[in-house]
Design a protein around this nucleic acid. Structure first.
Lengths: 160, 160
DNA sequence: ACAATAGATTATAATTATTATAAATAAAAT
DNA sequence: ATTTTATTTATAATAATTATAATCTATTGT
C-alpha cells in the first residue's frame, strides 16, 4: 500500500480511537476508498460501489453510517451541489475548510481550488455581523472558456 | 393587497407571459406566498402548506412544478443547505445572485447578506482559471456572538 | 477459557423528498 | 362548437437516506 496513504489511514485511525470509535475492517475499506479518490467528490452510492470491490459483503447502510461518522468527526466534508445526492470529500491535512469549487454548467466538470480566499471576508463578517465563522462554502457556477461540452458525462443538474 | 407586492406580481406575470407560460390561479397563489415570505427560505413543503391556506385544493406536485418553473426562469433561486430539502427564495430585483448566507450552527438561524462581496474573486477566477462565472454561492457557518441557543427551533442539520 | 456486555454490521423495512404518469379540467385557437 | 394545448389533480413510482431488529464480533470481568 502507498506509504502516504497508509500514513493518512493511521492518522484517521487515531482520530477515531480518540473519540472512542474503532477502525473496523468496513470502516478501513471505506476510508481507503476515500483516500484513493481524494480528487473526486463521491456520492454515498459511489463510495458503496467502490468499497464493495475490496469488501463485497459490506452493506449500504454501513457505508452511510461510516460517512456520517467521518463527517461528524470532521474527517470528511459532506457537500451538496443541488443534484439531490450528498457528496463526500476528505478534508485534507490541516487545511480544514480551505477549498472552493468551480462548477461548469455546460459540461458539469467540477474543479477544486485548494486555497482559502475568504479570510478577509470572514473578518468582515465578524466585524459587521458579530458572527464568528467556523466554516464556509464557496462555489462558482459558470463556464470554462475552453469548455468543449462534448466530454459532458451527465447533464449538470446542480443548482446553487 | 400590498401595492408593492402587486407590482412585483405583475412583473413576474410578464416574465411568465414572455416565455409563453400563463399565471394560473395556482401559480399566482404560489408566487404570492413567496412574495409574502421573501425573508424566509422555504422548502417546497413549506410553500405547499402556506399556499393551501389560500388555495386549499392545490396539489403538492403543482407546487413542485411551479417552483421548478420559477427556478428555470430565474425568478426564484433553488438552494440546498444540506438538510435534504431544497429551499426556494425569490431573486429580488436585478441583484440576481448577490446575496450570501450566515448559518448559525448553534441556533440554526439563517441570515441573508444582501450584497455581492465576490466581484473581485470572480475576476480572479476568470483570470487564473479561464472560467467565466455566471453565478455563485457563498455561505458562512459559525456562531453569533450573541447567540442564545434557546430560541433554537430545530436542530440545525445543515452541513456545508 | 467462558459468559456477559457493548459496539458494529447486515438485511430489510420504513421514511422522506421528489418526479413521472394518466386522467380530468380549463383555456385558447380554429 | 370543436379541436388543440397547457395545466392540474390524484396517484403511483423512484431515489436517497434512515431506522429497526437480528446477528455477529470484540472486549471485559470472572
Amino acid at each position: 500500500m502507498d506509504i502516504t496513504i497508509s500514513k493518512q489511514l493511521d492518522k484517521i485511525n487515531r482520530q477515531l480511537m480518540n473519540k472512542g470509535y474503532k477502525l473496523t475492517a468496513q470502516r478501513e475499506a471505506t476510508v481507503l476508498v476515500l483516500l484513493e479518490n481524494e480528487q473526486d467528490h463521491l456520492s454515498a452510492e459511489d463510495v458503496f460501489m467502490l468499497v464493495r470491490q475490496k469488501f463485497p459483503e459490506i452493506g449500504l447502510a454501513t457505508v452511510y453510517r461510516t460517512l456520517e461518522l467521518l463527517a461528524e468527526l470532521n474527517i470528511v466534508e459532506k457537500m451538496n451541489f443541488g443534484d439531490g445526492v450528498a457528496r463526500f470529500d476528505l478534508r485534507s491535512e490541516e487545511q480544514a475548510h480551505m477549498h472552493h469549487h468551480l462548477i461548469c454548467t455546460v459540461c458539469g466538470k467540477l474543479k477544486e481550488i485548494k486555497e482559502d480566499w475568504l479570510l478577509e471576508l470572514e473578518q468582515r463578517v465578524e466585524r459587521e455581523y458579530g458572527f464568528k465563522v467556523t466554516d464556509h462554502r464557496l462555489d462558482f457556477m459558470g463556464v470554462y472558456h475552453a469548455c468543449n461540452g462534448e466530454e459532458c458525462k451527465r447533464e449538470c443538474k446542480a443548482v446553487s
